[in-house]
Amino acid sequence: MMRNTILLFGIIATFAIAMFGLTILPKMFIDKAVKEPDYYTPFEVTEGHRIFVREGCIYCHSKQVRAEGFGADFERGWGRASVATDYRNLLPHNLGTMRTGPDLANIGARQPGRDWHYLNLYQPRAINEHSIMPPFSWLFEVVSEDARPGDEGLRLPEAYRIPGMKVLPTDEAHSLVAYLISLDQQTAGVD
């Protein structure tokens, strides 16, 4: 018969040892290298990160690149292998587990143009008819063609145009795109 004390002790001990091994120990190994030196992130980028989290982009787009030779991440142009220092100070972590859509760790290098991102966020099927990405129309405002002269709005294909109106990105769209463009892994991994 198993004694109570052995049972309770065993339950707590097995938990505590693994907890130390998988949460505290990695913290001791990774924290210092990532936190120093202080790292500055522009407000627009942190705000964009917040919207990225809010809209749940991570459930279809990973943000971690596997090393060359393990999968085809490198060959697809998704950049070099991700390292801990790539993530710096933006929480939550957004590493992701799913690639219903492509990895985004290097999206800023692959699609540096803002207009491409605005169009893709407003109506992904305006860029790729087979895309199954949700449209994020609430990050945009539809205004009359005559309003705000000088700003032409998104260059939508015929099928998605609204007669007499134009589509303008809101501040939230500006921030989200600033964040996406900041994701660039062309540079060396260790600094």
Binding site: I11, M19, L22, T23, K27, R88, L91, L95
Partner: peptide
């Protein structure tokens, strides 16, 4: 009933403040 509350409490601690460490805590 001992493991689940401990898991819940540890995961709520504000000590996992670097992204990769948080990812480790996340999947643990």
């Amino acid at each position: 009933f001992l493991w689940f509350p401990l898991l819940g409490l540890v995961s709520s601690l504000p000590i996992f403040d670097t992204p990769t460490v948080q990812a480790g805590m996340n999947w643990w």
